[in-house]
């Protein structure tokens, strides 16, 4: 699939990515479908509209970078990379198996298009800060995007990075917080004293926006605003964990769970039965 511009086309792509996720986890009998589905619309928008990338040249120096800091949601990243042309969708079948390019969590050395290794939570924003500082130093025009989970920002290093990004005025760094309200054990509200999220980023000197993370027009507008900001920008995206499949939505048991054959069939039906390969 090539780059697209309008929300209707993005919706189709996001549906395809969601189906890819469900099928990958179903076939591998392992993985995290819920947190992948909550960011599918943002990932589709980035990879099929916003990112300045060249799938034929994954290590192009001037490319925009995307870091999936919440690396456990990697199936949706793998889906986007494959559908964008970095590698064949046939690789999906190898997810989490020996010799596959698709590790259980993203590995920049094994998967073309993965810009940063990730998966142990909290670290992606700091890596993004390093990439954004490198862009400033090298006078490169690229943007660095980081996708954080809302539970993930309980990690202290996230705020070390937030402080550092402000100091270096990294207006080329754009972070999303996937605010689906859930984390591994329970709701973010019950587990932590984190809420409310936005004032914390404001206090750290970031340009802040809140959006509906499933509304393509809002995602596109927020990225445009973030690029205009004179500071590092965070977009707190209200999302639904498991978005797109009623049986999965807001049911945190799908944080890590394998869909059975009938659930896969439902996914095919709901998501349009897109291409398998």
């Amino acid at each position: 699939m090539a780059e697209v511009a309008n929300p209707a086309e993005l919706q189709k792509i996001a549906d395809q990515l969601r189906l890819d996720v469900v099928k990958m986890v179903h076939d591998a009998k392992d993985g995290h479908p819920g947190p992948a589905l909550s960011i599918a619309d943002i990932v589709a928008t980035l990879y099929f509209k916003e990112l300045n990338i060249d799938p034929q040249n994954p290590y192009w120096e001037d490319r925009d970078r995307f870091i999936l800091s919440k690396g456990h949601a990697c199936t949706v990243l793998y889906a986007a990379l494959a559908r964008r042309g970095y590698f064949p969708a046939a690789e999906f079948a190898g997810l989490r198996s020996l010799g596959s390019i698709l590790q259980g969590h993203p590995c920049m050395k094994k998967t073309p298009g993965v810009d940063a290794t990730s998966g142990s939570l909290g670290n992606g924003l700091s890596i993004g800060v390093g990439m954004a500082i490198a862009a400033k130093y090298r006078q490169k025009p690229y943007y660095t995007y980081v996708m954080l989970g809302d539970g993930e920002i309980q990690e202290g290093i996230v705020w070390e990075a937030a402080m550092c990004a402000k100091k270096y005025r990294l207006d080329n760094l754009i972070a999303f917080v996937d605010n689906n309200g859930w984390q591994s054990g329970d709701s973010v509200e019950n587990v932590s004293g984190l809420l409310p999220i936005l004032p914390k980023w404001e206090a750290f000197g970031w340009h802040c926006q809140s959006i509906d993370g499933h509304d393509f027009a809002q995602i596109i507008e927020a990225v445009a605003n973030a690029k205009q900001a004179a500071a590092p920008a965070v977009i707190v995206a209200k999302t639904v964990k498991g978005k797109g499949l009623a049986f999965m939505e807001n049911d945190n048991s799908w944080h890590k769970r394998v869909p059975d054959d009938s659930q896969l069939a439902v996914a095919r039906k709901v998501l349009g039965g897109g291409a398998d390969e």
Binding site: D115, M131, A135, E160, A161
Partner: peptide
């Protein structure tokens, strides 16, 4: 000279980002 403050975890991960960018 990249000064990240008293934040060693950030220092190392920032360095990872710098190195991933060819520095």
């Amino acid at each position: 000279y990249i000064e990240v403050g008293i934040a060693e975890q950030n220092a190392v991960a920032v360095a990872a980002g710098l190195a991933a960018s060819g520095l």
